[in-house]
């Protein structure tokens, strides 16, 4: 792009815009008209995050056995056979402390993270079935769910209530309110 090679000066059409931006996001401020509008299909190619109500969870399903198998091959190297963590690989225990799976507020976030970020050296390569299986395995292995045959799909994963969710609190000194904490 030109701007990255030379300091090309781009002439702006004269636009006035107010500095003030009221409480409402709708604004009388004039638009510049830059950027290209996109449709749903194009958005779908980029939009892979999972909302806490399960929006975005893909098709497919996986059980604990599948998860355990994938974990042994692709994850144990860093996370340890028993999820105890291998410090030299930068991974901490998933049973305790700050990375304790039991302490997560939402199973949806666990799925979201595993599918987009793991395995660390090859992120984005897990199939949906594998990601469901891995989440099932992790939840059973850390004692969140007591069901060695657990199978997860979009519906059952979204329905999981994590026991620690209630322990997340708002700092009274912060700008956040109890409403920010609520499931809508």
């Amino acid at each position: 792009m030109s701007a990255y090679k030379t300091m090309k000066i781009i002439t702006l059409t004269t636009v006035t815009f107010g500095v003030a931006f009221g409480g409402l996001y709708a604004s009388a401020q004039e638009k510049f008209g830059f950027g290209r509008s996109v449709d749903k299909d194009e958005i779908a190619r980029y939009d892979s995050d999972i909302h806490t109500d399960g929006t975005g969870l893909p098709e497919g399903s996986g059980n604990v056995a599948l998860g355990r198998e994938i974990f042994e091959y692709q994850c144990a190297l860093c996370h340890g056979e028993n999820l105890e963590g291998v410090p030299e690989m930068g991974a901490r225990t998933l049973h305790d402390g700050r990375r304790d799976i039991k302490k997560l507020p939402y199973a949806t976030s666990l799925f979201d993270f595993v599918r987009r970020a793991m395995p660390l050296t090859d992120p984005g390569t897990l199939s949906n079935d594998e990601a469901y299986g891995l989440v099932a395995f992790l939840l059973v292995e850390t004692g969140v769910i007591d069901d060695p045959d657990l199978t997860l799909d979009a519906k059952s994963l979204a329905a999981i209530k994590m026991p620690n969710r209630k322990n997340f609190i708002i700092d009274p000194a912060s700008r956040f309110t109890a409403e920010d904490l609520e499931d809508k």
Partner: peptide
């Protein structure tokens, strides 16, 4: 509403007494 992504729930959240965790720190 917030997404509660992995990093905001774990590494970057602050523990508080009685097993509480401060959200949105």
């Amino acid at each position: 509403k917030p997404w509660w992504t992995h990093h905001e729930d774990t590494e970057y959240a602050d523990p508080r007494p009685n097993d509480k965790i401060r959200a949105f720190s």
